[in-house]
Design a protein around this nucleic acid. Structure first.
Lengths: 376, 376
DNA sequence: CTTTTGTGCGCAAAGGATTGCCCTTGACTC
DNA sequence: GAGTCAAGGGCAATCCTTTGCGCACAAAAG
């Protein structure tokens, strides 16, 4: 039920510590202590050397399963992301994996597929397997999964998304400040009709970026600014494309689009190109994360640079710390992100797209969420 | 030494099978058998239901460590790639992980960093941990690491790169045919001076793609074709950029560049753009793998589509098969790849770049490898 | 010379499950 | 009524290490 079947193949019989002890003519406990640096009961120096030599000769290496069973330590950590192939998460995994490997931990990796119940089951599975710690990149705000980690007593670090749990350390980007800077950027370019495409607000990232957008709207000095928020249901290119297509059909009222992430932005670009709307001449678009290749698109995407590798390694660092000192104080590491200005943002056009002949037909349905315009 | 330290935190005491047995008033062996579907000694139906109920009530779940120690089965598989964040490998990992998770395996993931000795150490570590099987994407041809897997008796499947070991199953792309098709493509476009940038030939992919290129050269009907091979030292964008810069400085003699992979091709595009050389008007460029976003670059990259996810899931499939039936016959699955024609390839220009005034200065150093031109 | 103090190592009990073998019963056959 | 048989469970070994405790012996202290 828990451990799948599978015939063990013809492994050669492993050499155990009994073999070493036998050959050395000592008791296993002596061998164990000799091979264990932190042996409290000390063994004489020459005996240690003798046993080490014999262990070497015999090619002995301790069976981690037995060790783990005895010590309740497995030397494993779990890494969980919502999507393994997303270019945003892969570097986080990679960097974390490298860092923990330095301390001789091996990593279980799993993908929650953006499904809360799957995350719960992953955590349970990993807990059963006695992971020493967990680094999770897919917590929602007040996620029950976070409670579960704490209840199970697993040292846990949240990365990228902060469940905002009082007892859970986190490593995140300063999304709020970042998106605010993006708003500032397009305001500086003269844009006054600005839309923000948010992701589902369960994630703290979505929350913070929206907050950043709202904060940015307060910066607007001009009298007739229009700010709107549109909610996406997913995180991928196709969703961005779908949304932008709909907006174009509905009559485009904005000159600048800030997107929750690069994937949505790329989708928006695709839709704009298909509709023959020029970016940035008619509409400016921005993303978040600055994924690889974003600078090479046409137009190159203005984005917020988020350093995935730094998040991963810092998350691992915190986690190792937590594993070592059972009750380290909760910490929240915040990396600042900076706007990378590229070709997808430009000066605001004199007239928005909807005034052009081409798109006059569509009825103007309201977007999903409508932010209140903020007078200066 | 093998298992890192780390204080186990305040986990609540786990409920063991003894607790279940005690509460049921039976022996642990009875409880074990009742909870184990494949129990040979059968337990009466009502007893099974009783014990299952009690186990449920107590929240019992077997300790995989103890089970593994006893049965020598761990329910884990190892996934090894050369680089976790490479957009080529991440989907392979993701798909494989999904597939084996269906069969209740959890996955150790590690990155060999393109270092043979690191691969060896990863395999040893995973072997010690009793992985049920290994899926490796970073074997070189005749890799000692492949021998090690066999020697250790670990069911192993090679993906993407085939070590060409008689006893090792593999799942790969038909690189040879693919690259030949690319050559065909640029020949059709009228190109007669064609360079191929190969990767280090230790990898079977490099080998096969070069073979595909060489095979392609035989297709050339025109009298004065020039084919050259240039060897890259790495796989990333920067290397492609470096190489192309050097070639430009040396005086560009080619009108079409086939690159070992997309990353090198993207680097080449970057260098060309920096030098003010137009692609595809002056030079055509192709890649391999068709990574995400390649169709959105400027120019969009003509590439060979390789389905990473299919490789990953098929590799997992083979591996699970191998784990189940200790001695399944060796299999080699070959996925065909197809050319995706995009904007980075176009009709051959009338004159190659070097005849233009701008680049006449540089001495013409020979490229790293010079293939013998093939007369038609 | 006896009594303390270590030092160096052995003994055996965990840790939590699986499994070969044996024992007890009740049913069934002759 | 004695003998056969199979079903249902119990016993204890086993997987491999780690570790609390105890023992012996030698050196140091009285």
């Amino acid at each position: 039920m828990s451990i799948p079947t599978g015939n063990r193949p013809n492994r050669q019989p492993r050499v155990t510590i009994l073999d070493v002890a036998a050959k050395a003519g000592v008791h296993v406990s002596t061998a164990s202590r000799a091979l264990n640096p932190k042996a409290e009961h000390r063994i004489s120096g020459k005996m240690v050397r003798k046993i080490e030599l014999i262990a070497e000769q015999l090619g002995y290496s301790p069976n981690p399963l037995a060790t783990s069973l005895r010590t309740q330590r497995t030397g494993t950590v779990g890494l969980v992301v919502p999507n393994l192939s997303d270019p945003l998460f892969a570097p986080i995994i990679a960097a974390a994996q490298e860092r923990v490997a330095e301390d001789d931990f091996v990593t279980f990796v799993a993908s929650s597929d953006y499904k809360p119940e799957k995350l719960l089951s992953i955590i349970e599975i990993m807990s059963r397997r006695h992971v020493a710690g967990l680094m999770v990149a897919s917590f929602d705000i007040k996620d029950p999964a976070a409670d579960l980690c704490l209840k199970l007593g697993i040292p846990t670090v949240a990365v990228l998304r902060d469940p905002r749990h009082a007892e859970l350390s986190s490593v995140t980007m300063d999304d709020e400040k970042g998106v605010r800077a993006l708003v500032e950027h397009v305001l500086d370019l003269g844009h006054r009709r600005i839309a923000y495409i948010t992701a589902p607000l369960a994630a703290s990232t979505a929350h913070n970026r929206l907050a950043g957008f709202m904060a940015g709207t307060k910066l607007a000095k001009a009298a007739h600014c229009q700010f709107d928020v549109i909610e996406a249901d997913a995180y991928h290119v196709e969703e961005g494309e779908r949304i932008m297509k709909r907006l174009i059909a509905d009559g485009m009222r904005w000159t600048a689009f800030l997107c929750f992430n690069d994937l949505l932005a790329v989708g928006a670009l695709v839709a704009l190109k298909a509709a023959g709307i020029a970016c940035p001449d008619e509409i400016s678009v921005t993303g978040v994360n600055d994924l690889p290749f974003m600078g090479l698109l046409s137009p190159p995407l203005t984005s917020l640079h988020n350093a995935g590798r730094k998040i991963g390694s810092q998350g691992a660092e915190l986690l190792l710390d937590l594993i070592e000192n059972g009750h380290a104080p909760t910490r929240h590491v915040l990396f600042s992100s900076h706007v990378v200005v590229r070709g997808s943002t430009g000066p605001a056009p004199s007239r928005p797209v909807q005034d052009r002949d081409r798109s006059a037909k569509a009825a103007r349905r309201q977007p999903a969420v409508r932010a209140r315009p903020r007078p200066p």
